[in-house]
Design a protein around this nucleic acid. Structure first.
Length: 434
DNA sequence: TCTGGGGTCCTAGGACCC
DNA sequence: TCTGGGGTCCTAGGACCC
């Protein structure tokens, strides 16, 4: 990319003050699928759960959106609207990989990159004496480089994160929307309150009851009235509706929780089914914690009942843990506090939070060591897990095997039951694997 | 055959300590 | 002996985001 030549051909109103970009990848998951499957390009593609298993749409390609399909729509409804759509459950490692490549592109422009999700990031590209380039030029170069990777993005440019975010949504896909400093209030005032990040269905309803439907009306309402309705959040939304938002780019966001949850095609009612589901979720959480080298001190269990009401229970562990063999029994105890046999269970979730302790140094076993440590004998299994350091090695080894051969390749007793009960698929235990 | 799964942040009440 | 207040931790629930 030749900066000087593109600069000479570039004419725009000079940018004064802070410049924030919001880069949003267009229909990201579906776009990656179309990139990776050339024959899917130009066709409706839906990434989401099964229509007959209470699934929802994660992302719909623009070709599918023409039929009215959109994110979070029940898959069953999407299927009715667009029966010819190509359906996939998604390949999240692949999306993560693409996302990382794009973050690298953004990091070439500035160190002030804040990734807000797998498909969105803020950048601070405020012109300085050293970096005099116009924000629009930077945005155009980012769009080109992202397209070179085979997906597209929309970008909003403004004087704050709030403005950049809303601007990015004005024109999709491949849009570039600029809100010049000083024009923020004209830009915001006609927009519906829902345009503001932080105002969801609940706040929208509450505001409508007092006659506020636009950001202009929200901005004109005395601050204290909005604070009375929404507390601290109200103060923030009032400031933002008035074009104010001095929040900066946060670059070092550490993980605060790791969770796994699943909804069932049919509600569970039997204790062994619910316990098996909990064990499966817990083992996934444990594995991800170990992968991230994290140990959590607060363990939480979440149940959604047949009537969709939710209950949760959490407990503080005596010592931080990432060992599901250790905390699964605790989850069973917690389960008894919020559920009894016969109550329909629609969803089970397990979460670990409380990562206060600095992560301990990574200690990985090589594949050779794993094979050396691997046992062929089921009788050796129990004594092996009783001793903490050996247990860590066992967990490392099973994690590695799962990485290579998939989740169902290695299962502990409590999990095996879950697969037999819910899917009927065959499974192997550690001892069978070699 | 309506409404997932991964997160973050806030609130409010109770326990406990000083 | 009684009362109070602040700070902090813990817990459950809920709003919101992508």
């Amino acid at each position: 990319m030749n900066k000087s030549s593109s600069q000479s051909a570039f004419h725009a109103i000079p940018w004064t003050g802070k410049a924030i970009l919001l880069v949003d990848l267009d229909a990201f998951f579906a776009s990656v699928e179309q990139r990776d499957h050339p024959d899917w390009r130009g066709k409706p593609v839906i990434v989401g759960g099964d229509p007959d298993k209470r699934g929802v749409v994660s992302t719909a390609s623009y070709e599918a959106r023409v039929f009215g399909v959109h994110s979070a729509m029940p898959s069953s409804q999407a299927k009715r609207l667009c029966p010819q759509a190509i359906w996939t459950h998604g390949h999240f490692d692949r999306y993560r990989e693409m996302s990382n490549q794009i973050i690298k592109i953004l990091s070439d422009e500035t160190p002030y990159v804040q990734q807000v999700s797998i498909d969105e990031a803020f950048l601070d590209v405020t012109p300085t004496k050293v970096n005099t380039e116009h924000p629009i030029q930077i945005a155009m170069r980012i769009q080109q480089r992202v397209e070179d990777l085979g997906v597209t993005c929309s970008i909003g440019i403004g004087s704050s994160k709030t403005i950049a975010k809303i601007a990015s949504e004005m024109d999709k896909p491949r849009g570039l929307t600029i809100v010049y400093p000083g024009t923020e209030n004209d830009f915001l005032s006609p927009l519906p309150v829902r345009a503001l990040s932080g105002i969801g269905p609940s706040a929208e309803t509450k505001l409508k009851k007092v006659g506020i439907t636009t950001l202009g009306q929200l901005a004109q309402t005395p601050r204290h009235e909005i604070e009375r309705m929404f507390g601290k959040a109200g103060s923030v939304m009032h400031i933002r509706a008035n074009g104010g938002d001095d929040s900066g780019i946060v670059t070092d966001e550490s993980i605060k929780s790791v969770s796994n949850e699943t909804s069932f095609a049919k509600d569970l009612t039997k204790a062994h089914e619910v316990e098996a589901a909990i064990a499966t979720m817990a083992s996934k959480v444990g594995r991800r914690l170990r992968k991230k080298n994290l140990k959590g001190s607060t363990l939480a269990l979440r149940i959604r009942y047949g009537d969709r009401t939710v209950r949760s229970i959490q407990t503080t562990l005596a010592a931080p843990s990432n060992d599901d063999l250790e905390f699964i029994p605790k989850l069973y105890k917690m389960l008894r506090d919020i559920w009894h046999e016969g109550m329909p269970v629609r969803l089970v979730g397990v979460a670990m939070t409380g990562f206060d302790e600095p992560p301990e140094s990574t200690e990985q076993l090589s594949l050779f060591e794993i094979e050396d440590n691997q046992t062929n004998n089921h009788e050796d299994f129990e004594p092996l897990i009783a001793e903490p350091t050996k247990r860590k090695k066992l967990l490392d080894a099973t994690d590695s095997i799962r990485d290579r051969f998939g989740d169902t390749s290695v299962q502990f007793g409590s999990e095996i039951r879950s697969y037999q009960n819910t899917t009927g698929s065959s499974s192997k235990n550690v001892a069978d694997y070699k």
